[in-house]
Amino acid sequence: MTDIPQNLEKDGAYTGDTGFSPKRDSDVEFKKVEKQCLEFYPKGELTKLRKRRWYWEIETKDIINVADFCFNKLGCRFSIASGTDTPRGFTILYHFSLDRIGLIINIRVTLPHDNPEVDSLTSLGRGFEWIEREMLELLGIKFKGLDDTRHLLLPEDSPPDYHPLRRPHG
């Protein structure tokens, strides 16, 4: 009884259905994705800092639409989100990875200091839940539609207004 794939012995390794992708370095693919992005959300400001690192500034209220476009239409994988406390407000960078061409689309939203609130993306997939819980406790950003608001990293009994990644501005 053996379960070794037949070509394993011959070639030294079993290969999946993907190998080198000719699309990966093709400028045409990058242009196509850029066009799709701009057509979908022309209001946004798309900065191509490096060939494979794009930063896309959008309005906070549109985050679900744009994230849905990236996650479901473009077929991106959600890598992670980074929240930062900056003098002009809280910024969240949602890092979406388009593995087909090795591109990272960083979607940036900025929230005001006095009422930081943004729509939760948990309706798109369960993979968004932990990072939103993390930003909720570390930065105090509220996520509309996030059901589970327990602490993720901080102790259960840490006070609700304790947000260690907040910074003094003034």
Binding site: A13, G19, R52, S97, R100, I104
Partner: peptide, 19 residues
Amino acid sequence: RKDDPHAAYDWIEWEEIVL
């Protein structure tokens, strides 16, 4: 290593294992 090539992964031959 395949999708977003860095270091030397783009200059040598190897296969991605997918099951």
